[in-house]
Amino acid sequence: MKTETWLQKFSFELESRGLDPKRRSEVVVETAGFIDESGTEPLEQFGFPSDYAASVISALGETTNPSPPDNPTIMSANQLSKSYRSSSVLSQIDIDLREGQILALIGPNGSGKTTLLKILAGMIQPDHGTVTTSASIGYCPQIGGINPNLRPTEHLQLFGAGFGLDKDQATAEGKRLAGQLDWEITDRMTASELSGGTAQKLSLILAMLGRPDLLLLDEPYQGFDNKSAQRFWELLWTWRDNGGAAIVSSHSEDVLIRADQILELEPTS
């Protein structure tokens, strides 16, 4: 890993842990000085940026959860259970998500992450339990959810129409979000011709269009390169800082340190 990349990731990690910009800048500059003086690779010297950032934060005594715990609840789920045929997928799941919080859903394949997100989105019914929310919801599925024969801006205009956005508004908003994910939208290709990661960015942008109160994101950055994955988290943190909430399912370990709450699901049968 190049020194610049390492430092950039380190800075992102410090930011994600709520370190204020001034102190973050000081720490990064100081660390860069150490690297320069020692002449060794930062990965060799300090380890992974996330690990080192955690150590620094711990040493500085900084908080890692910037979301106020007394914010109003945006969605709650009570004792959710779901079975397919006789096979239990979810059992007695409780969620209390507040404005300005990111909840990470983790668990192995088949642990019910996608099923839970679909229940929370109101797309399928739980067998037992209730979901309570008055939030507007943006949903990004793990696969699909876009029309392979439409171009990106046509998707933006179609989804924007639901919110009452005109074509120009929807396109401008979509392009702004795409820019934050390091993607410049062009209309040369249909969705089926986009790379997997780019199609996923489109799907994510469609979930964020219209600025819903709550994002339900199912493996949203699978297929992203490292830089885009970082950008995704930056975008989500900004979203959170503006009062939005999100539930993110992921297999990536980085979600553990980037989210405010963790809900670990396990296969129930």
């Binding site: 797309m123 949903y139 959810g145 029309n147 009452g164 269009l209 219209g210 819903p212």
Partner: peptide, 15 residues
């Protein structure tokens, strides 16, 4: 069938 994959998402946007 193709529309059925998009319909739930569009419904959430208000369609």
């Amino acid at each position: 069938v193709e529309a059925s994959t998009l319909r739930p998402r569009l419904s959430l946007t208000g369609w």
